Simulated assay, not measured.
Amino acid sequence: MYDVVLLTLGSERDAPGGGCGSGGACCGGASEAAPEKTDERCETPRVPVLACADALTARGARVETVTARSDAEVDEVLARLDGPPRPDGLSWPDPDSKTRLVVATASDAQLRAVVRRLVRRYAPPPSRRPADLAGNRTVPDLPPIGVLPLDPARSGTQRDLAAQFGLPRDPAAVAAAVLDGAVRRLDLLRNDGGSVTLDGALLGAADDDGRPLHWRGRVEVDDAVLSDGEDPILACAVGNAGGYATLDQLPLLTAPDPTDGLVEVAVAVPVVTRSLGRKKIRFEVRRARGRAVAVIPRDEKVPFLDDGVEGELSRKRSWWTEPGAWAVFTG
């Protein structure tokens, strides 16, 4: 039978050193890279966690509930997924592990925080790249994760990753998926800022009245140039999944697929036309798919959301696809 760790990310007020506000793991903050912030509340209801633990225990699993309030405490949990020592000394996940991980999530940012720590643990440095690592990857197959949404009653309105992937939301169904369900491998976006993206990123912002603020930057997808830096950009969507497929009913991404090994990128720019002497503005959406995307802002700071985490882009940022790098337990 399995040992199951039910991991909850702790609250801001309980976190050592300020927790979320200091970029800790609890809200998906990025302590190793450019500052990120989120307005997501970190407080996590205990009822779904206890219900899932009871369901797992009833099936004979040995269950431990852990509340992690820092990256270090998350890392202590993830170390239980390590495989046997390797001759090259690298930390590597155990593909036959009898320990399974369930992450209780109040937001996609919290799920990303855990996957980010998995990448930090298992990605070998370039100078020690092993021969058994796939040529199109910088990380091995990460251990699958059970996802326990902490808002199971809102499944009809949520567009979080659990909803997008059709994962179970009821605690008992999550427990069954972890013990009996299949594993679905999903693409992961890494970026040169040191973070990861599970769903996608949206670059751009609006003023206090909701009017879009245009920005300029060069956007390249492999060899395709979507903007040369001269266009006033309304928004740029970088999609692994479909969370940022539309913006105020404007279709951006057409068919983002987190299993196709590609990132879909869309840039929306205003186009001025004249008809019968009247000026009209429409939005042109330029799209491309590829293995990598680079955004080079010309403006001083470009606001963005990345898996729901806010940030500001002031220098070149590149995302690239790691096909099938992470995985979830499905029903």
Rank of each mutant, 00 (worst) to 15 (best):
G229E: 02
A177P: 07
P45V: 00
L186G: 02
P212F: 11
P251T: 05
V74P: 01
L142V: 03
P126V: 12
P140W: 04
V102Y: 03
E230T: 14
P85I: 06
Y122V: 03
D299C: 02
A106F: 08
A288W: 08
L6K: 07
W215C: 02
R159S: 10
S318G: 04
A61V: 05
G204R: 00
S91K: 09
A205M: 12
T157F: 12
P303E: 05
P258A: 05
R13C: 09
G21T: 07
A25W: 01
P95Y: 12
K301F: 09
V183N: 08
G24C: 08
V74E: 04
T321C: 15
L179H: 02
V114Y: 02
V295R: 00
P152R: 01
A288E: 10
T273Q: 11
R121Q: 14
A58I: 07
P323D: 12
A266W: 06
G83K: 02
T8I: 04
D108H: 03
D207Y: 09
G135F: 11
P149I: 04
G89I: 06
L167K: 01
G308V: 00
I145K: 00
S195T: 11
L118M: 15
A153H: 15
D151R: 14
A176E: 15
P323R: 01
C52K: 01
A325Y: 08
G18E: 15
G156F: 08
L167A: 02
V47T: 13
E36L: 15
V103L: 11
A25F: 06
L252P: 00
R291S: 09
A176H: 12
T57R: 12
L50F: 08
V119A: 03
E284Y: 06
E76I: 01
Y2K: 04
F304D: 06
T8G: 13
R116Q: 14
R218K: 09
E64I: 03
T57K: 07
